[in-house]
Design a protein around this nucleic acid. Structure first.
Lengths: 225, 225
DNA sequence: GAGCAGCCTACATAATTATGCTGTGTCAAA
DNA sequence: TTTGACACAGCATAATTATGTAGGCTGCTC
């Protein structure tokens, strides 16, 4: 990501790393603030109890990295991540939470979180993680990483088959994945529906399916398009 | 994974950790063997130049962890991972390679690799990674972790919408994803095709689509089933 | 008891899809 | 020159799909 590379290159020389905290429990919030402020190379730009408060004030002193809990009063951390990334695409957000269930890990990643740490993470490891995120990495414990990989490979076959599709067949298949039917695909490709019929026959034969929806499912599962 | 938990529980007390190496370059292979043999808590059970050789001999002294290169003469490491995991599901396999392109990372993960390290990894980090894998984690550098997360969220929406589908609607949608058509889904659910028609209408309305293949694509992309 | 949601069933109809078969043109390789 | 692959086009036909409309039953809530 060119933008990211430029940002990283830019911020590499821009120390200290600015960190903001979003945590509803006061003692934890204060501990994190203290930890960050007391570390060379880091500075704490903001400390918020709710995501609403963070969204309102964070732009006044935009940090490089945000440490956010998931379970917050009002808006939860994951929804907040989504909004923060929309407003500040280069912002790095680390989830700091007690939850380690697949659902939340998955949602946090999809929302755009750069890392996922559990609250029991030792302070030294936490500091290291902030720096890793700043350096373009995605800090997480090996256990979380394993869960991510397992979720990742959950619906995917162990071997990607190419099915020997021709460029036109692949292009038509992609149109089907995007929601096209025979008529609209013909219009899109500038060919007649008879040509579509011809290609469909070949595609179904190669994929060993008998309907467009089967072809679409296989294409998505095997990342053919 | 119950099987995995049992295995981990079983092997936790079973030290040293047995490690095998698959690496075509002799100097690297010997260095790795030496590193493993010279580390407390680890032992080297085998050292192979090719994946074919590993597949032939590895069962004679089955390791807990395999360190495997990807670029090997003959069968590549990724295909080897797939076969090794088929034969020995509890085997932990760490890829050790110079490649860090998305394609290979993706294929290695889908094949069943537990970790992904680059050849420039310092020895101490390598040893730590072996132990992390043995302890149920998925060792990888933060940079690789980030790539995995980016690939993961690539086609997924930032927010999962539930669409308020009823249990029957969700069940029918799942059958469509699995390749059923109206007739076969009706047979599977023990209802008439008119009932299928009725549910389909409601599903399409909620998902805002107009065909089964569109519904299937949305279901897969949003992990509705 | 009334109302509502969910599930089930039915019928009708137009459009679409899936499949079989045939033909032509272009281009690259043998 | 021949062959094979690919793309395009056509026609026919049966089956399927998508959509509109109508009705009944069950269980739950007010």
């Amino acid at each position: 990501m060119t933008n990211d590379a430029a940002a990283t290159s830019e911020t590499t020389s821009k120390l200290p790393i600015k960190v903001a905290i979003v945590e509803d429990q006061r003692n934890i919030r204060e501990c994190l603030s203290f930890l960050v402020s007391g570390t060379d190379g880091l500075t704490c730009t903001g400390s918020y109890r709710t995501m609403e408060e963070a969204l309102e004030k964070i732009a006044h002193a935009l940090p490089d990295v945000v440490l956010s809990d998931i379970g917050l009063p009002g808006m939860d951390g994951i929804k907040g991540v989504r909004i923060l990334k929309e407003r500040h695409p280069n912002l790095l957000i680390l989830m700091i939470t007690v939850y380690d269930d697949d659902e939340r890990i998955f949602d946090a990643i999809c929302a755009g979180a750069s890392g996922y740490l559990l609250k029991k993470t030792p302070p030294a490891k936490l500091i290291e993680s902030i720096k890793e995120a700043f350096d373009g990495g995605a800090p997480m414990t090996p256990q979380i990483a394993r869960r991510v990989m397992e979720m990742f490979r959950h619906d995917l076959p162990t071997e990607r088959e190419e099915y020997n599709l021709t460029p036109h067949e692949r292009r038509l298949l992609k149109l089907f994945v995007q929601g096209h039917n025979y008529k609209t695909a013909a219009a899109e490709l500038g060919v007649s529906i008879n040509t579509i019929n011809f290609h469909v026959r070949n595609i179904y034969n190669k994929l060993q399916v008998h309907s467009r929806s089967e072809a679409v499912a296989l294409a998505l599962k095997n990342r053919l398009v």
